[in-house]
Nucleic acid binder design. Sequence first.
DNA 1: ACAATTTTTGGTATCGGTAACATGTTATCG
DNA 2: CGATAACATGTTACCGATACCAAAAATTGT
Lengths: 327, 327
Amino acid sequence: MRDVARAVGRSPMTVSRALRGDETVSVKTRALISKTAADLGYVYDSTAQAFRTQKSGFVAVTLPSINNANFAETFRGLSTGLEASGIQLLLGSTNYQVEKENELVRQLLARKPEALIVTGGYHLPETRSLLENAHVPVIETWDLPPDPLGSVVGFSNENAMTDVVQHLHDQGRRRIAFIGAAAGRDMRGTARRDGVVAAAQRLGLPDVAIVDAGQAPVSMRQGVDAIKRLGKNIAEFDALICVSDPVAFGVLSECKRMSVNVPEDIAVTGFGNFDVAMVSNPQITTVDVHANEIGRKIAEVLLDVIDGNTQPRHIDVGSQLVLGETS
Amino acid sequence: MRDVARAVGRSPMTVSRALRGDETVSVKTRALISKTAADLGYVYDSTAQAFRTQKSGFVAVTLPSINNANFAETFRGLSTGLEASGIQLLLGSTNYQVEKENELVRQLLARKPEALIVTGGYHLPETRSLLENAHVPVIETWDLPPDPLGSVVGFSNENAMTDVVQHLHDQGRRRIAFIGAAAGRDMRGTARRDGVVAAAQRLGLPDVAIVDAGQAPVSMRQGVDAIKRLGKNIAEFDALICVSDPVAFGVLSECKRMSVNVPEDIAVTGFGNFDVAMVSNPQITTVDVHANEIGRKIAEVLLDVIDGNTQPRHIDVGSQLVLGETS
DNA sequence: ACAATTTTTGGTATCGGTAACATGTTATCG
DNA sequence: CGATAACATGTTACCGATACCAAAAATTGT
């Protein structure tokens, strides 16, 4: 910056202002400085800026898994929403482990993010106190935690499942199995399971069977494997509620191979309204949770927060049953 | 840090060393300092560290699209490989636009990343010179550029397609169409298309028809739409080579709805060997490009580079035809 | 022409760590 | 016991931008 200043015969201070587009620098000086900086191949040092201003200019995001079309869609909405602001996204993946989330949050906080976006509403007590003491705006997402740390942009996994169970009940299905990850890791999956169990109970249906599809993240292959393991026992059920669309797709595919007819013999539902649900043949009944909208709303809340608005916001984007051909 | 130093009766320098696990600080002093820091709720300032040491401790990654299982898998391999090192990943998405890549690279460079990972081997001249002058190790991936900027971990999109065309030729297929994104945006897609065209020519097959599936990123729905637009004309072909597995899946699904039998009437192939290819029914013939391995190898190269090894490395992870039931 | 503004520019201290070097303190050994 | 090595800790000067305040230059009004 000093070099640029010398080259244009101005002080570094003026250069600093000019490069940030400060209006108090005269238009021609600004133009000259921009040009000179470019000519000299000067690269602005954001680290020094972050240090001096105590504002890092990025937002930290924790995702359970990067390889998940749903979170990816939220992330995309978020990126798009933040694009104009020049805010960058620092990403970390927790692999669905709260212990790892804790470590990750610690690392991310040390970088003084403008805000922290965490997926899910369940955290270790240690993580909670870290976040509470950090005085960094927190946005929880993909959930509606009972006791939020700050802002929330999400939906109720339980309620979403209530709609699914109600729908299956309306179709005359009674013997329901839920296929999802082993309990304890994927908290949103667990919430969905609980939602199913509770809804079935309220509707007077028999107890819901829980089919363990292995460790989160569960995907297509685990759906296949779960059905393989079920084998003939699949005849005990007339509806399979899957924790996500990929699982449902795997289930559907394996049913076909086993000559189990969907939806005649058994209904199958997914979650998330991924492309695969619509493109699949038959189309999978699923739940749209507005993943992209969540991302865009997060961006909105974020820009608001960075603007100095400290009032936490709670946004329920809701969810919507999407009827397909599998139920 | 000064506060912690005062609390333990040592200088800030000793605290600094202790917190970084410097062995020259006596074991008990180190323990005391860690404990005191934790008790005081001290949070280490990575920004200041980055500023002083001129090492940011993160690696920047540009991806064409975050919502893409291919890159996501690579990203996952990379995350896993870097986990222990404490290096963080700063992510940016270019939306398959080289102009955007340029802007993104500029922003990312301002943060002085330890290294920069860019997807693809084609960049604007401006971007190239930015990268060359930045003196930041660059790793290009998902490609084998003829004139690499630094290290490379990738595979040849062209060669991968040669295998596919050879296989189809062996099966007696002759009239091939390639389904991919509009030319110009997705350079890896373009490379694949060129690979198909060239291989067909070498084998003496008729000219390959190019079916435009719209703007990158193309996914399942665009596969569906492409086939819908083809309509009856699909009978002109006996093999459809798709730029990616999701596209192939969409194609397959729409073929089924149109009562076009795969593979009897027409062969369909994908690219990437992702879950959907194997779980799909019929299983999709595809190409495994070892996406996860790419990520892990990048991590390896990265750690090597950060260790001060400036020698660029060129790793070809190769690709492998995976026979399914659609060809 | 000159004071009162308004606009534009500059000087200085500083953000919180750490590299490099200096110094103090405790074992080791002939 | 004193010299030397090995270990532990301290001092100082930065890294590069910018907040804050001060001052110069340009513009305006009478």
